[in-house]
């Protein structure tokens, strides 16, 4: 019973993703892969923001730490990506803990701007620490991932990797949502003082949420490096952090389905607007604003409203209920 929803989500991701992989042309497959990578990062952000209420505008820095970690270990040190990825992810988790410990005393827009400053600093360091990061030239020739003779290099092959990772992360996130830790995070978000009084160590919960979010970010960073086979400082700027947050809000904050939907929508939306020529960013901004104004609970909220209006399927409603937190 406890594992039903995580399994449903994981199955849905693999089935829907697999079907899309069969019908989509290769270019859209690439966008799908990019949106799945973003979705992994956004699910991570959902731990920090959706559950624990920590506004982070520095998420891309953790994606970058994962990506750079893998890139440096595989190119400079010549490790296998299978070994480099866990090390990069662990290193990112540790740095997130160290950064989070002093930083997470801040709240609201203070935390937002502090993490923004962190992301800007990450950019300055990666573009100037030439010996380690190659500076603004970035790191090229990152080896692809291979399993025996099967290489995840084409978009089709990579799709399976991305789907498996995303399904795993999403299932873990859904399981966590129902766990004690998940409930504690939400309690901290909803009322910090009250949760402190019930005996929850709010600082510890916040740091755990932050580290979990950084782990997902690092996983996304590793996927990014293995997909692009190239990393550079400008792939991980604060603008990317804002995009991750926008994906979460547009999809529906606090929900895993929303995180995935938001990542897919905001990756494909510029593509659908390409017919507008150089004016596409103009309309992209307006459309996002429109979604925020007219769908304050995001795509997931829209889905709920529609399903509630058309047929009041109790099964659907109950399957979503534990997900919708607000």
């Amino acid at each position: 019973m406890a594992m039903r929803i995580p399994l449903q989500i994981a199955t849905a991701i693999i089935v829907l993703g697999g079907i899309s992989g069969m019908v989509l042309p290769e270019y859209h497959l690439r966008l799908l892969n990019l949106s799945l990578i973003s979705a992994v990062a956004v699910i991570g952000l959902n731990f920090a923001f959706g559950y624990a209420g920590l506004i982070s505008l520095g998420h891309a820095a953790f994606v970058g730490m994962g990506g750079y970690g893998l890139a440096i270990l595989t190119t400079t040190c010549g490790w296998s990506p299978w070994l480099a990825a866990p090390v990069a992810i662990a290193a990112t988790a540790i740095s997130a803990g160290l950064i989070g410990y002093p930083l997470l005393r801040l709240r609201g827009h203070y935390l937002a701007l502090a993490t923004l400053g962190l992301n800007v600093s990450f950019y300055i360091v990666t573009s100037n620490w030439i010996a380690m990061t190659g500076g603004t030239n970035g790191i090229a020739r990152i080896p692809g991932l291979a399993l025996g003779s099967f290489s995840f290099s084409g978009e089709h092959q990579f799709l399976w990797l991305a789907l498996m990772v995303l399904a795993l992360i999403a299932a873990a996130a859904a399981a966590l949502h129902k766990s004690r830790l998940g409930r504690e995070m939400i309690a901290v978000r909803d009322d910090e003082i009250a949760s402190e009084m019930t005996g929850i160590d709010t600082t510890r919960i916040k740091i755990e949420a932050f580290v979990l979010s950084a782990i997902c970010a690092a996983v996304a960073g590793c996927l990014f490096a293995l997909h692009m086979r190239f990393v550079a400082p400008e792939d991980f700027t604060y603008a990317h952090s804002i995009t991750y947050l926008a994906m979460l809000i547009v999809g529906g904050e606090g929900t895993i389905v929303g995180a995935v939907l938001g990542a897919v929508l905001l990756t494909f939306l510029p593509e659908w607007l390409r017919f507008l020529g150089t004016a596409y960013l103009f309309f992209f901004g307006l459309l996002v604003l429109g979604i925020l104004v007219f769908l304050p609970t995001g795509l997931v909220g829209l889905g709920q409203r529609l399903s509630r209006r058309s047929a009041k399927t109790p099964l659907l409603a109950s399957a979503r209920a534990p997900e919708a937190t607000s």
């Binding site: 923001f49 506004i55 505008l57 609201g108 827009h109 937002a112 804002i242 947050l245 926008a246 809000i249 547009v250 904050e253 150089t278 004016a279 596409y280 960013l281 103009f282 309309f283 992209f284 901004g285 307006l286 996002v288 604003l289 925020l292 104004v293 304050p296």
Partner: peptide
């Protein structure tokens, strides 16, 4: 009436539009 984050994202969206 949006949350802090909704407003942050909203103003970022507007700034993309303004720049374009």
């Amino acid at each position: 009436r949006g949350s802090i984050v909704t407003i942050i994202i909203g103003t970022v969206a507007v700034s993309i539009t303004m720049q374009n």
